[in-house]
Amino acid sequence: MSARRVREWPLAAGLSVPLFFVLAPFVWLLLSSLKSEMEIAVAAPFSMPDRLLFENYLDAWNIGGFGELVVNSLVNVALVVGLTLAVCAPAGYAFAKMQVPGGEAIFYVVLLGLTVPIQAIVIPLYKVLSALGLLNTLAGISLAQVGNGIPFGIFMMRSFFRGIPDELIEAAKIDGAGHATILLRILLPVAKPAILALVVISALSTWNDFFLPLVVLISPESQTLPLGLVRFASTYSTEHRLVFSGTVVSFLPVVVLYMLTQRRFTEGLTQGALKG
């Protein structure tokens, strides 16, 4: 660690000031989510709610149909995360440790995908999903999101596997292990932090994705959380108390996920993204 000669508490106290500003929007959001529509409409930003209206959360849940939305979002995230890992880990391994014919060229074609914003491909993508009968399905949106996430996933897994000494793999080969065995038995256990990092990154971006679901998920029963929040806004008026409480509901699960995995997650970033 760098120069741990600075005294802990003065620095921590000093850092609390920027932290306060960084977290202030959260405090404001939490407070607002407990206000009545009238208080939000007229009150000054710093005022405390008259009464803490926890029923905003119930209303957001019931009126917004959040039960179904949460289930859909969870299925969506599970599909994306599972599939991303299943295809990116072997591909990353192959690019890092195997003789792939034309490997470098293919790798750059994959990296190209990093630079393509979703807005640039949304219409052709819609047509592809339509042709495959995947519009308005969680499978369809998930496949599309995996497709978009693959460049980063492969890049990360490749970097991680490149950091693993060749000797380890050679030794396993001498013991008669094939590539599949090497990947599953030897490398994946070592790769846990990198995998966690990939899990968190792809889960985060899927959970919060708005643009693609907006175009692909048409009917209410197939929609995900971010679209649910739109239901509280209409042409000329928005029910803010529900938008705010719905927003809190929508990010609590990710906060929990992050808190649970954050130690390993940081490690994974170190090894995944930076080495290689």
Binding site: S130, G133, L135, N136, L214, V215, I218, V230, S234
Partner: peptide, 18 residues
């Protein structure tokens, strides 16, 4: 509704089978 004709949501919805 997730949007209007102006932002393409209506067109996307009509085009889908659902």
């Amino acid at each position: 509704p997730t949007g209007t004709i102006s932002n393409g949501a209506v067109q996307a919805a009509i085009q889908s089978d659902a």
